[in-house]
Computed example of a mutant assay.
Amino acid sequence: MTLNRKYFWFILLLWLFYPWHFTHAQQKEVTNEFAVWKGFFLNTRIAARNSIFTDLHHISGSFAVARAGLTQHLPHGVDVTAGYARLWLTVPGSGSDALDRNEHRPWMQVAVLGKIGSNINLGTRIRYDLRFRQRVEAAELLPKYDLTHRVRLQETLRLNFPGFKTEWMLPYLVLSNEILLNFGENVSYNTFDQNRLSLMLGLEHNFLRLQTGYMHRFVQSASVPNRYTNNHNLTVWLFYTLDIRKKTKE
């Protein structure tokens, strides 16, 4: 496949995934919110084909996530990961920004990373979330949990800038889009859950990367029909890779 064709497929996927039909169809109730998304990612290599994945996220007044998983590294740039995530969410209808609602989320994913030329990477990720979210009635938390299923498809394009590389860092640009879809008997209004489109500038130094930029999260309400939120997020994400494999003596 030529370089131009690969670009074409990436742009086509972004166009198809972005929810134009949700914003231009019938009349919707849309609100806007602004926040900072802080994230930390840790990959710990423990064996030639295995690593431990950990990430932490926080958006004030929206959610906090602590996630971990075990990754199996397969040939041809394919990674398979399974793990568990713990979430703290706001309570719908309460009007409070407190993260009082609980969610337990076993998850698994397949990620494929390929190269397009010497300075461009194209990544595809499919993730499945098994979501146990604390039940809410009349803005009150209940001790019971509702089960829903969610599938997520993400396409990510990374462009390196070797011409601006210094002794201590390599700058790069990341364009990403992810669509999230809900399934299950407890899903009433939001089979389409949300879409995440982001553009970030990154700096890489050996095992450390810093990414910052803008993410637009278009989210549909799970409890009110035809209600959506445009979330405008400033992202500040830090990535750290740690290798604790035992070194063989020569």
Rank of each mutant, 00 (worst) to 15 (best):
K165W: 00
T235C: 13
T241M: 00
A66M: 04
D146H: 11
F164P: 03
H24V: 02
V78D: 01
G39D: 05
F192N: 01
L14C: 14
L56C: 05
P92I: 06
L181N: 12
I120K: 09
E29V: 13
L180N: 14
N43C: 07
S188Q: 09
G61Q: 05
L201M: 08
R105N: 11
H24P: 01
R101C: 05
N4P: 09
L122N: 14
H76R: 06
H73M: 15
N206P: 02
P143C: 01
Y7W: 13
F218K: 01
L89A: 00
Y84C: 15
H76C: 11
A222D: 03
T248M: 04
Y18A: 04
F17E: 09
F41E: 04
L175S: 12
A35K: 14
F10A: 12
T235V: 13
E103P: 00
T166W: 03
N230F: 13
L180S: 15
L89D: 11
H232V: 01
H149W: 04
N4M: 05
L170H: 11
N182T: 03
H149D: 12
A85T: 08
R127F: 05
K6M: 13
E155L: 09
L99S: 05
L99G: 06
T90I: 12
P162G: 07
K246F: 10
H24N: 10
E185A: 14
Q109F: 02
D243R: 00
Q109G: 04
H232L: 00
W15C: 14
N182P: 07
W168D: 02
A25G: 14
W168A: 03
S51T: 08
L113A: 14
A139F: 03
A98F: 09
T248V: 08
V80A: 12
A85P: 04
L159K: 01
